[in-house]
Amino acid sequence: MTVTAEREPAQVATLDPAAIAREASPEALSGTSRTPALLIEHLSKRFVVGRKRKPVTAVHHVSIRIERGEIYGILGANGSGKSTLIRLVSTLLTLDEGRVAVFGHDIEREEMRVKRLINRVSVDAAFFKKLSPWENLVYAARLYGLEAGPAQREAVRILSRLGIKESRMSRPVEQMSRGMQQKVAIARALLTSPALLLLDEPTTGLDPRSKLDVQTFIEELRADHDATIVLTTHDLDEAERLCDRIALLNDGRVVAEGTAAELKTQVVRDHGGAATLENVFMTYTGRSLDEDVEEESDDAE
């Protein structure tokens, strides 16, 4: 059963309104536009794996509509298709079936335009580890056509907000803690003023302090910039705290969607039990979060 929340489209205000004005479709700019920030329609993705080359469906006829300014959470067990979905929207995978549009732009027909509108932070903060944060951020900024000077000033602003001093920016990334690296990764993504920010488990593996810093920053992005964010996470408290709406993904399918309150109400009414997001997760995915975390640890080993 899917619970879908009714919500008015957010106002036209993002991290960088000028960037949207350049890239978004004309109808998306009109005040009365209902063009969603992200529209996914009947999206499927299969991979061929193993010696027998058996096809595995990672994403199965997923349809999602995310409005401008929303923070949209995607919850699911390991292998449920969360990261594949993010990679499909990031243009890192081709679509087998269906359609994806970012601010009205089809990601297959207008790939370059979509690339300018999005950015992504993944669970692993990937950098040139011998280079400093400065050098990595300037490199990323230039890839998006930005000048080094303004990019550096913006990086200082973002990183100081995340608790990293400017003096720390000249030493190699490899000398930074995992939490600091992830903050630099977030700064890298925000430097390009993405209209749609894809956060793929950005707080996984962070210490409590770093996790809180990142979560607070995401809340600020929503409050101050009306950013549209897609967030995948294993942390149910984080999802409940940050997300306007949540989709539960199981075996590549969206099995439930709605606000945290709606999902809890729905589960208690239909299945009983406690009114918690963990109960929602167990009901729709058939497993507890602990099992999921244990499996993740096994994978890591």
Binding site: M112, I118, S122, D124, A126, F127, F128, A140, L143
Partner: peptide, 14 residues
């Protein structure tokens, strides 16, 4: 090797 390939490939450059 550095893990940056996906970031480079999703950048809006030819």
């Amino acid at each position: 090797w550095e893990g940056t390939l996906e970031y480079t490939m999703m950048a809006p450059i030819h």
